[in-house]
Design a protein around this nucleic acid. Structure first.
Length: 273
DNA sequence: AAATGAACCTGTTTGC
DNA sequence: TGCAAACAGGTTCATT
């Protein structure tokens, strides 16, 4: 489900509901996630107060005054929702954090690709999931020049590079396709054959599409919902993703679907070279 | 070293 | 209509 704009949308929804709250209890209904979750492992969170909710790549970090940070990942189908205790739960609700205001933070995830982990702060930066992440695309540290320099002589397709979180954080299948379309780059183009101007265009296109998606509250194709249970509205603005066989809005060429590294890629053969 | 493919799961859509 | 195959917003491990 969630790429950077969706995770950031969830973060913005969660922050005002969680910051300042105290965790009064934790229920693990089904701990079989990507890594096993246990009530014991989350135990130190009991009584902790939430200081902040941050995002890094597609991870959410809930800082607490217990010297530990709750690391959350939504995988493909994960949801985080704050709701009044007693309200009906979504199916596949695996972990529930009870709060001191009568509400609950609920993590649900049908496919169980998501992650819930409590990490001591002094080990947070070295954590294997966070160490080695590339720059945030909406921050100034990501530049076309950086990508140009990093890709000389390499042969990886540019679409696959965009989705490699060690190079750029937070880009998934939808926004990789959309950014390449806006930059006029063919998804199979080898990274070593993209020139400096091409990388500049790509970074600019990436920022534009991510910011527009953020403004729309993210993309809901199947089941993305924010912390209040509402969908995002960027799906209507997608120009290539999931538009196989439809006409390109700019040149009329039919959008094609190919498979790269096991993932669908959508592109316009007329606009992308 | 770098790139691809399979695996992890369940639910929904597509195609015969 | 019914069933099976394909596919889904992600990450990680094994294999070329």
């Amino acid at each position: 489900m969630p790429e950077l704009p969706e995770v950031e949308t969830v973060r913005r929804g969660l922050a005002p509901l969680l910051v300042g709250r105290r965790v009064t209890g934790i229920d693990v209904r089904d701990g079989r996630l990507r890594r096993p979750v246990t009530r014991r492992g989350l135990g130190p969170l009991r009584g902790a107060r939430v200081l902040a909710v941050r995002r890094r790549s597609k991870y959410l970090l809930v800082d607490t005054d217990a010297g530990r940070t709750l690391l959350l990942h939504l995988g493909m189908t994960g949801h985080l929702r704050v709701d009044d205790a007693g309200r009906p739960e979504a199916p596949h609700t695996h972990v529930v954090f009870r709060l001191d205001d009568g509400r609950e933070l609920r993590f649900s995830d049908p496919r169980r690709f998501g992650m819930v982990e409590l990490i001591p702060n002094d080990r947070l930066e070295q954590h294997p999931r966070l160490a080695g992440l590339g720059p945030e695309p909406l921050e100034a540290s990501l530049t076309g020049a950086l990508l140009h320099a990093a890709t000389r002589g390499r042969r990886k397709p540019v679409k696959n590079l965009l989705m490699d979180t060690r190079t750029i954080a937070g880009i998934g299948n939808i926004y990789a396709c959309e950014a390449l379309y806006r930059a006029g780059l063919h998804p199979r183009r080898r990274v070593g054959r993209v020139d400096a101007a091409g990388w500049d265009r790509l970074v600019e296109a990436l920022r534009a599409v991510l910011n527009e998606a953020l403004g729309a509250g993210g993309t809901t194709r199947r089941d993305f919902l924010n912390a209040e249970g509402e969908p995002g509205y960027f799906a209507v603005s997608l120009r290539v993703y999931d538009r196989k066989g439809k006409a390109c809005r700019r040149c009329g060429t039919l959008i094609r679907r190919i498979v790269q590294a096991g993932r669908s890629t959508f592109f316009c053969p007329g606009c992308q070279r």
